[in-house]
Each structure stands twice: as C-alpha cells, then as structure tokens.
Design a protein around this nucleic acid. Structure first.
Length: 258
DNA sequence: CTAAACGTACAG
DNA sequence: CTGTACGTTTAG
C-alpha cells in the first residue's frame, strides 16, 4: 500500500535503521505530490543502456538477488517514460547543456504534442533512435520540470507548468532549495541546498552501510553514496559548472544528432 | 581526478 | 544540544 519506493540496495538488516534524517518519503510536501505515473520499481525493471540505474541502486552485484528478468514487460513507450526514465533524464540533461550553450532553442510545444503522440520508437538511448530526435527536444523540455530547478534553472515561459508538475511543485523547489541565497550567489553566507527528493538516490530509503560514506559516517559526515542526490552531486550554476560524465556523454550523443 | 576530512548549516 | 548531511578543502 505504501507508495514509498524501497530500493533495496545491498541488503542488510542493519540498513533498516539507516538514517534518522531521511524517513520514508521525500523531504518536501510539494514533492510528495509529484504525480509520477510509475513506481520506481518500474524503472528498475526497465534497463537503460546509457544509465545503469541498477548499478546505482545496487552497488554490489554480489548482493543482487534479483531473479533475472530476461523478458521485461516492455510497455509501449510513452512520453512519461521518456522523461521519467533514466534515459529521459540523460537526454534532458544533455539537452539542457545545449540550451545553456545556446545551441538549442526552446521550441514551444503544445500539450497535445507532449502528452499525446509519443514516438513510436523504443526508448533506446544511445542507439537506434537517432532520427526524429530534434523535433522532440522542444517537447521534452517542458516535460521534465524537475530537472530545471535541479540545475538552478528558471523558465520564463512556463509551458510545462501545466503538464506534469503544478507550478506549486516547481516553486516549492525553487523557494525551498534553490533560492538565490542558497545558490551561493548571495554573497557571504553560503547556504546549503537540499536534496531534490525526486531522483533515484533521493528516493532510496536505506543506507547501504557498505559504501565509504556509510562506513565512515562519523568522520565523513556524508550521506550514503547511493543516496546522494543527483542534483547535489553537481555544482550549482556558474562558470565552474561541473559537468558530470553522464552529462558529457549525453551531450556528445545529442551533438552527434545534429 | 577522486575520496577523505573537516567546518558548519540545518532540523529535531 | 545533538545528529545529519552539504560545501569546501586537502591529500593521495
């Protein structure tokens, strides 16, 4: 009944008492209202060639007790899949990079385009769908609202606001975790950002108790590596914007399409 | 470049 | 006050 996703990583009875700080739900009320069409377990059972979510969630193959599922229930791909799945994130990240670089213009996409007609292609990430990608980019952006505040993004238009997440959700994110003061732009006082609560690591409920962060928590003062928010892993905007390899790969792939 | 260590913001 | 965890610095 619980909608909370329990991503059992390295299973250990100990991990039940993982962190007192992060309970069984996203931190912010606004996040709880996120209307994800699928549970995380769905994504886990939907392999992506580009982003190894399993690896992310289950760091140690030895721990992996999952019965292999050769015949995954491959549903007909839909837009929610595209932007919710690891693949979607991957592409959206890459696309945002292009936007930041001014290489990609935001094409206004109608909601019908977005929610209605998805590509008939498979959601292969790095191969096989190199065609017809560009037209979709414009439609993608509005659909991954969480990504933009995650990257310190502010959208002026707001086509997407009426789609997946209400404006309230985004504004909540911006207000709570990404206010200008918290982005380091506020001069002296450095504020701490908060975890997004949306990404796979954030949704994970338990510490692995095996990673260096878990084992070295007393000195390291760090959250479990597998729970470290994807957004917090990258630096907030700015000249020294750190681009994770995942982004770089995504960008590379997007560029090859043009 | 990565990871560890540390300072400290933040929440209870 | 205490514990957790983000941000920064430092070491390897």
């Amino acid at each position: 009944m619980s909608t909370a996703v329990d991503i059992a990583g390295p299973s250990s009875p100990d991990q039940a008492h993982s962190s007192a700080k992060i309970p069984n739900e996203p931190l912010r009320p606004s996040l709880k209202r996120s209307n994800h069409p699928y549970s995380l377990s769905h994504y886990i059972s939907t392999p992506s060639p580009a982003v190894d979510v399993k690896g992310l969630i289950q760091p140690s193959p030895a721990q992996e007790q999952r019965p292999t599922q050769p015949s995954k229930p491959r549903r007909a791909p839909s837009w929610p899949d595209m932007w919710e799945s690891p693949s979607g994130l991957h592409l959206a990240h890459a696309a945002e990079l292009l936007m930041r670089a001014g290489l990609l213009a935001l094409t206004p996409a109608t909601t019908e385009q977005a929610s209605g007609s998805g590509p008939e292609e498979d959601e292969e990430d790095s191969s096989g769908c190199s065609t017809d990608f560009q037209p979709f980019l414009g439609a993608w952006f509005p659909f991954s609202p969480a990504l933009f505040p995650l990257a310190g993004f502010q959208m002026g238009g707001g086509h997407w606001r009426s789609t997946a997440v209400g404006a309230e959700g985004i504004e909540g994110l911006v207000a709570e975790g990404y206010s200008p003061g918290s982005l380091g732009g506020g001069g002296g006082g450095r504020r701490k950002r908060k975890r997004c609560g949306e990404c796979v690591p954030c949704r994970r409920q338990t510490n692995c108790e095996q990673c260096s962060s878990c084992r070295n928590r007393k000195r390291g003062h760090q959250i479990c590596k597998y729970r470290k928010c994807e957004e917090l892993k990258r630096k907030p905007g700015g000249p020294g914007f750190d681009t994770p390899m995942k982004w770089k790969l995504g960008l590379k792939w997007v560029k090859h399409l043009f």
